[in-house]
Amino acid sequence: MTSHAGGARPNSAAPAARKGGFSARNGWLLFAGFLMVFGGLMMLFSGISAIAKDDVFITTPHYAYEFDLTSWGWIHLVLGIVILLAGFAVIRGAVWARIVGLALAGLSMVASFMWLPYTPFWALVLLAIDGLIVWALCTAPGLTGD
C-alpha cells in the first residue's frame, strides 16, 4: 500500500477542476450557444423587418412555398425569440437546451430554406449557421455521460 503526500489521491481534484473550468465540452457548447444567440437575433431582426414591410425583401412570383411576407415575419420573429432563449440556456449549461436547440436549429433550417426567395444570401448564411449549431451540439460530449 502506497501513501501519497497529504493523504489525497493524485487525481481527486481533476474531476472538480474539469467541471468548473474550461474544457472541450464547454467550448463546443459555448460555440453552439453563441451561434444560437446570434442566429436567433438575426432571425428576430429579419422577422421585424418583414412585419414592418421593409423594402429589403424581394418577392418571387410563383414560388412553391409562397406565404405572405407578414406571415413569414411572425414565424421568424417567434422562432428567433425561442432560439435566442435556448441559446442562453445552452450557454448556461442546461442539458434540456441541447435537445431543444437541435430541434430548433432543424426548424430554423427549414424556415431558412423556405426564406430563400426573399433574401437568398442571408438565408444561405442562416442555413450554414444552423448547420454549425447542429454539429456543435451533437459533437460536444456530455449527454451520454462521457
Rank of each mutant, 00 (worst) to 15 (best):
residue 59 T to W: 11
residue 92 R to A: 15
residue 55 D to T: 13
residue 140 A to W: 01
residue 120 P to R: 06
residue 12 S to D: 14
residue 41 L to M: 15
residue 125 V to A: 12
residue 58 I to D: 14
residue 40 G to N: 10
residue 112 S to V: 08
residue 16 A to T: 08
residue 11 N to M: 09
residue 103 A to L: 15
residue 146 D to H: 07
residue 106 G to I: 15
residue 112 S to G: 11
residue 85 L to C: 13
residue 29 L to D: 00
residue 40 G to W: 01
residue 79 L to W: 08
residue 31 F to S: 08
residue 19 K to H: 11
residue 12 S to T: 07
residue 32 A to G: 12
residue 138 C to F: 10
residue 27 G to C: 03
residue 37 V to G: 01
residue 58 I to Q: 14
residue 6 G to R: 00
residue 54 D to F: 11
residue 69 L to S: 08
residue 69 L to D: 03
residue 120 P to G: 10
residue 53 K to C: 05
residue 69 L to E: 10
residue 86 A to K: 02
residue 9 R to D: 10
residue 119 T to R: 11
residue 130 D to V: 04
residue 93 G to S: 04
residue 111 A to E: 13
residue 116 L to R: 07
residue 144 T to Y: 08
residue 3 S to G: 08
residue 105 A to L: 08
residue 61 P to Q: 11
residue 75 I to W: 10
residue 145 G to H: 00
residue 34 F to W: 13
residue 10 P to H: 07
residue 43 M to Q: 15
residue 89 A to E: 02
residue 138 C to P: 00
residue 111 A to K: 04
residue 55 D to F: 09
residue 99 I to W: 13
residue 88 F to A: 07
residue 126 L to V: 03
residue 8 A to I: 05
residue 38 F to V: 14
residue 48 I to F: 12
residue 11 N to W: 12
residue 127 L to P: 01
residue 24 A to H: 07
residue 16 A to F: 07
residue 74 W to A: 11
residue 101 G to Q: 01
residue 34 F to D: 00
residue 127 L to M: 06
residue 71 S to R: 12
residue 78 V to A: 15
residue 27 G to P: 00
residue 99 I to K: 09
residue 30 L to S: 03
residue 103 A to K: 02
residue 113 F to C: 01
residue 76 H to N: 15
residue 55 D to Y: 09
residue 137 L to T: 02
residue 66 E to F: 06
residue 121 F to C: 06
residue 70 T to K: 11
residue 57 F to D: 12
residue 93 G to C: 06
residue 70 T to E: 13
residue 122 W to P: 04
residue 55 D to P: 12
residue 13 A to V: 09
residue 105 A to C: 09
residue 26 N to C: 00
residue 108 S to E: 14
residue 97 A to W: 01
residue 61 P to S: 10
residue 83 I to G: 08
residue 133 I to Q: 05
residue 104 L to G: 04
residue 65 Y to K: 09
residue 146 D to R: 07
residue 28 W to I: 05
residue 31 F to A: 10
residue 71 S to K: 10
residue 115 W to P: 05
residue 80 G to F: 13
residue 70 T to S: 10
residue 77 L to T: 10
residue 14 A to P: 00
residue 126 L to E: 09
residue 140 A to V: 02
residue 3 S to K: 12
residue 81 I to Q: 04
residue 115 W to T: 07
residue 58 I to P: 02
